[in-house]
């Protein structure tokens, strides 16, 4: 049995700054994960549909426009509504410190702000992957 971790990387909302999302996608691939890259301007609904079809273990959301408080929690809500309780959601982007605790309350388990080394993201995935083994 060869279990592979699958991760969806996407940008909800309308902002097109995908340098960070693309970097993360590529770096996670290099770390040995299977990354489904969805690109920019995705609705929470489309992200959740994709996460379910792809049966991913993690969903990574990137946003720089400031719409994170509205859009990140909506992704978590729709995932849970559609029974995907085991998918772990994390986020990144220009996110003020004071919003992070709110996002965590809403089920976004980690938030990576600019300048975070990729190793931190990998550590997060490694320490949490046992929870999504299925």
């Amino acid at each position: 049995m060869s279990r592979k971790i699958r991760i969806l990387i996407s940008k909800p909302g309308l902002d097109g700054h995908d340098r960070g999302a693309k970097y993360i996608a590529r770096a996670l691939k290099d770390a040995g994960y299977e990354v489904i890259y969805m690109g920019i301007r995705q609705s929470p609904e489309a992200i959740v549909k994709t996460a379910i079809q792809e049966d991913v273990d993690f969903v990574g959301l990137s946003l720089l426009s400031g719409a994170h408080n509205e859009l990140f929690p909506e992704v978590v809500r729709l995932l849970r509504e559609q029974g995907a309780n085991d998918v772990i959601v994390f986020g990144g982007g220009v996110i003020p410190q004071e919003d992070i605790s709110y996002l965590k309350e809403q089920g976004i388990e980690a938030v990576f702000t600019p300048g975070t080394p990729i190793q931190k993201v990998i550590e997060f995935i490694e320490t949490n992957k046992e929870r999504v083994l299925h």
């Binding site: 909302g13 309308l14 902002d15 609705s43 426009s65 719409a67 408080n69 509205e70 859009l71």
Partner: peptide, 16 residues
């Protein structure tokens, strides 16, 4: 090219 009341504008109105 979306109006503010378009569903795709959620969260983004007036932000950047």
């Amino acid at each position: 090219g979306y109006d503010s009341d378009d569903p795709r504008s959620v969260g983004e109105v007036g932000k950047v």
